[in-house]
Structures are given as C-alpha cells and as structure tokens.
Design a protein around this nucleic acid. Structure first.
Lengths: 202, 202
DNA sequence: CCTTTTCTGTATCGATCGCTACAGAATCAG
DNA sequence: CTGATTCTGTAGCGATCGATACAGAAAAGG
C-alpha cells in the first residue's frame, strides 16, 4: 500500500468546495443551524445531498466548517481588532466591525455566531454548545489582549481586563441582536460611538 | 340562539390552562420556537396534542400566548422599570432585571424574547418577525420614557432619548446572549454596574 | 481496450414534524 | 333517564427531516 500525496485517481469533483461552503455559510447565517434544511443547503450549494455528504461528512460537520469560514471571513474583524496598538483601538475596531458585519446589505443581518443556534432541540445541542464556546472564546481573547494592555501600561493598573472584555463583547452581541431585528447600520454605529465615548478606556 | 355567559355545557376541561401555558412557556424559553417539538410541549404540559389544539389553537398561537405570559411574568421587570422616577433609575432597573431574569437558577438562562426565534426556517418566519417586533417595541417604550425624562428636565435637553434607549436595550440583549452562553450572574451584574457608572444618565 | 477509483444524481430509507379524524368519557339541559 | 355538547387519548394522517443504497458517469493506471 503506497500513500501518494497527489495525483488522486477517480472522477474529479464537479464543484468548488470553497464556493459551496461559502453558500452554505450564508444559509446557516440567515436561517440558523436547525432552520437551514438539507434541501435549503444543497439547493444553495448547487449540488445534491450525496455530494454534500461525500465532501463535508454531515450537516453538523458542514456547520462547523461554515463557522470556521465565517470566522476567517466576515468575522475576521476580531483578529484584526486584537492587533490594534491600544486597548481603545481594539474596542473601537471590535464594535465598528460588529456594526459593519451585522448590517452589510448583501449579507444576512446579525452575527452567525449569535443567531446560528442560540437555542436548539435535542439534535442541535452540540452545535449550540459549540457556538457558546465560540462566543466565550472570543471574549477570552479580548480579555487576554486587555490584560496585555494593562501589563504594557496602556490601561491603568486598576483596570479589570475581564470586565472590560465582557462589556465589549456584551455590546457586540447586543448589536448583533439589534441587527437581526432589522435595526439600521447608522443607528447601531451611534450606539457604538456613544459606548466608546463614555468608557474609561481613554 | 341565546348567548349565555356562564354555565357551559359539555365535559369540563381536565387541566389548568394557565399552568399548562406556564410549562409551555418554559419549554419555548429553553429550546426556542422551532427547537420545541409538539411532543416536548405536550409532555411538559401533561396533556395530549388534541387537548393542546383544542385549548390553544396551534403551535404558533401557543407560542404567542406563552410570549404574553413571559412578558407579564419573568419579563415584567420592564414595565416596573419604566415606572422608576428617574431615567437613571429606569436604566438601572432594566439592566438589573435583565441580569436577574436571564440567570435565574430555576429557569432557563437567557431571554425568551431574544432566543425564542432569532433565526428560523420558512415555517417560523412569522414567529421570528413577532419576536423582532417584541424587541423593538420594548426599545420604543424605553425611548418614550426617556423622552419624558427630557421633557421633565430629568435628562438634559441635548440628550438623545432614542440613542439612550437603543444603548440600554442593546446591553440588555447582549446580557441575554451572554447568559444563554452560560456566563454567570455575578459577572453580568458587574457589566451592568460598570455600564451604568460610566454613562451620562447621571 | 479494461479495471479501479471516485464523484454524480435518483430514489428512497426510517424517524420525526405539526396536526387531526375518530370514538369513548364526562358533564349539563330537559 | 335521553340527547346534546365538549373534552379526552389513541392512532395515524401527509409532509418533511437528515441521511443513504444504488447504479451510471468520468477520470487515471495498466
């Protein structure tokens, strides 16, 4: 038995997996994990159910990969925000990025990590827990960044990085809910601006 | 044909509709509209599907009545908050009430109005829109209350009631998402306290 | 060419979805 | 008592759920 890296035999795949995953992500983003049926997904992906299962495993695995794609695409403002030089810059980039991403006209409104599966039936429990961990992980990374700001003297020593991170992410999740409710971009940007104006990150 | 008010004939109902509705509300609160199956609901209500349909109409009507019961019960902190004498008191009562209600140990975590149907498939679109309207209605009532505070001189004349209301409700929704993610009461109360400390409602 | 391998759609699986037809049970009017 | 009315659970409706068995199609290796 030889393990060969390339030159796979057999019929080549007739669709682009990355483009199919992008379309699946958009369906999950708009309808949530349980609200997106296999028929919805495969129709948007332009393939049959058989091809989807062969390429992605099952619905839950497809969602996991779609969430990764969301994190690296529409949700990538978070990693960029963490690279801002100051804590205030980080918070500003997170809130501005949230407003922009959750109210983009050509995309579903809201945040996939929030509305993907906030509650589920029994069959969706693992995805629900996955998204809760995704949100808490985001908060943890913000906290670690703020801790570094305290260590560097960017934030005063009595600042509480955990509290600040929880506050910023709470606002971000709230903005996502408002966006899902149809609230417009301008109004949410004003909320973000006001929250940053009156917060001791200055 | 005479219309008589009382003394209805026929077999009397064998269960308490209010208690059954309370139990249905808890199931919807925990699992969401689409995540709560008829079997889940009727099992928790202690009745058969036939009895549920006779008493409440269908699943969507049951949800509407459960949401009303939520508003009058666990969510009633909002109406009480609006009666606080000052705008700061209103905001404080809303955020404290949100923290308490979304992290009560004996109840599902989070807010039914947020996680009941943030996204749905096609069959749940009306319920999703109903909840979006429910959230926006809550924001509007806070805005009207803050407008009154401006008119009364409780808030400075340059204050923006719409912005303040959107900010408070955004925080409230964000707290609800955090609670649904398993974040504890004490940590969320600190967020609420910090947000109220550094906000120009003083 | 032929064999092997992998991808393709069709057609369908058992399970569950929301919902209801039906008949028996329990009450009131007379 | 009888008849009318309403509630009750059982049993099952058609539709849809996620997931698959199957056979044909399209490539590479020999």
């Amino acid at each position: 038995m030889r393990t060969r890296q390339s030159g796979r035999t057999g019929r080549p795949r007739g669709f682009d997996t990355e483009e199919a995953l992008e379309r699946a992500m958009l369906v999950f983003w708009e309808h949530g994990y349980e609200g997106a049926s296999l028929a919805d997904l495969t129709s948007a992906m332009g393939i049959s159910a058989t091809s989807m299962y062969a390429a992605f495993g099952n619905k839950e695995e497809l969602f996991r990969k779609a969430l990764e794609r969301y994190s690296d695409g529409p949700g990538s403002y978070l990693v960029r925000a963490l690279e801002e030089p100051t804590a205030l810059g980080v918070a500003t980039a997170i809130l501005n990025g949230t407003v922009r991403t959750t109210t983009r006209p050509a995309h579903p409104h809201g945040c996939m990590g929030v509305q993907g599966a906030l509650t589920t039936g029994d069959s969706g429990r693992e995805v629900r827990d996955l998204l809760a961990a995704w949100r808490n992980n985001g908060c943890s990374r913000v906290r670690e960044r703020f801790q570094r700001a305290v260590d560097d003297g960017d934030l005063p020593s009595q600042a509480d990085p955990g509290l600040l991170a929880r506050y910023v992410t709470t606002l971000s999740f709230g903005i996502a809910v408002q966006a899902a409710s149809g609230v417009g971009r301008d109004e949410l940007q004003e909320v973000a601006d006001a929250a940053l104006r009156d917060w001791p990150l200055h």
